[in-house]
Design a binder for these strands. Structure first.
Length: 281
DNA sequence: ATTGGGACCTGCTCGC
DNA sequence: TGCGAGCAGGTCCCAA
């Protein structure tokens, strides 16, 4: 599942290959099953009208969203959902299986958005019209960099009765964490994912923020997590390697690397949450 | 306002 | 061997 480290890895892989390149065409192949192509996207006509013959001037990331900045000032925004991949292939090569839309570039390559589960999303942002399709942005601060301080995090958790894990998954609180890194961050901080957010002690808040940053940075260095049930590959089509460094995620029944206790799972906010019952209180 | 749960979607794994 | 049930989860939407 592409979370912040996976999206950031893809961004870095693609940046030099798309920056300065002109989009010469947009194609949305019909789905063989006849259902929707991806979860949401502007009409094909609108896509063509606003993207064709525009150059990509930059590729940025916000939370789990990729932002293709165009020379028109428009921004093409892509969310990879659960199973999305962005791959560059030669123009003469057939698009990869499950390609939902692709952009032909003047370089002779196609930028393909493949997504078997169709949870992906594409948006346009235009200076004049604002968000086209719908507004993907009411995101909380980025956890990396200095945008988020322990005091900020403390304020956001204060008084909340929901499980701290549930709030870490809330993109309005922090942008970019998903199930894998929420679980891994809470393990490192020694916090039980079920603990009501407002009861996380003041001295634990900086530890939690530090754990979040460390986990994300380490995963970026490992080029992301390709979990056993995951579809994630980087911008070159390769798997990441952070799955070999996970402490709790998908390690149910295995022994804690720190204390040897058996890793357990519990359902929180509809998500399977992995934790060590001895290390996390 | 906050919180929880279901819907969306389909490839994969598991058990019979 | 084949088949159906259940699982995976990011985001949105609705209800309590």
């Amino acid at each position: 599942m592409p979370e912040l480290p996976e999206v950031e890895t893809i961004r870095r892989d693609l940046l030099s290959k798309v920056r300065g390149k002109k989009i010469t065409g947009v194609t949305i192949p019909p789905d063989p099953r006849g259902s929707r192509v991806i979860r949401r996207y502007p009409s094909a006509d609108l896509f063509r009208k606003r993207l064709k013959n525009r150059s990509i001037v930059d590729l940025k990331r916000r939370g789990k969203y990729l932002l293709f900045h165009l020379d028109s000032g428009d921004i093409l925004i892509i969310h990879l959902g659960m199973s999305g991949r962005l791959l560059l292939v030669a123009d003469k090569t057939a698009p990869p299986i499950y390609t939902r839309l692709f952009f032909r570039l003047a370089t002779g390559k196609k930028l393909c958005f493949a997504d078997p589960r169709k949870f992906g999303e594409a948006y346009l942002y235009s200076r004049e019209k604002g968000h086209i399709c719908c507004d993907p942005f009411s995101l909380g601060p980025e956890p990396l960099g200095d945008e988020l301080s322990p005091a900020d995090l403390s304020r956001m958790l204060a008084g909340r009765k929901a499980a701290v894990k549930a709030l870490l998954l809330n993109q309005k609180i922090i942008a970019g964490l998903g199930n894998i890194y929420a679980d891994e961050s809470l393990f490192r901080a020694g916090i039980d994912p079920r603990k009501p957010a407002g009861e996380v002690t003041a001295e634990k808040i900086p530890t939690l923020l530090e754990s979040i940053r460390k986990v994300l940075e380490e995963s970026i260095r490992s080029r992301g997590t390709t979990a056993s049930n995951g579809q994630y590959v980087d911008g070159k089509g390769n798997s990441g390697s952070f799955q070999f460094r996970l402490n709790v995620y998908q390690r149910k029944g295995e022994s804690c690397r720190r204390c040897g206790a058996e890793i357990e799972t519990v359902r929180i906010a509809g998500r399977t949450s992995h934790f060590c019952p001895r290390c996390q209180k």
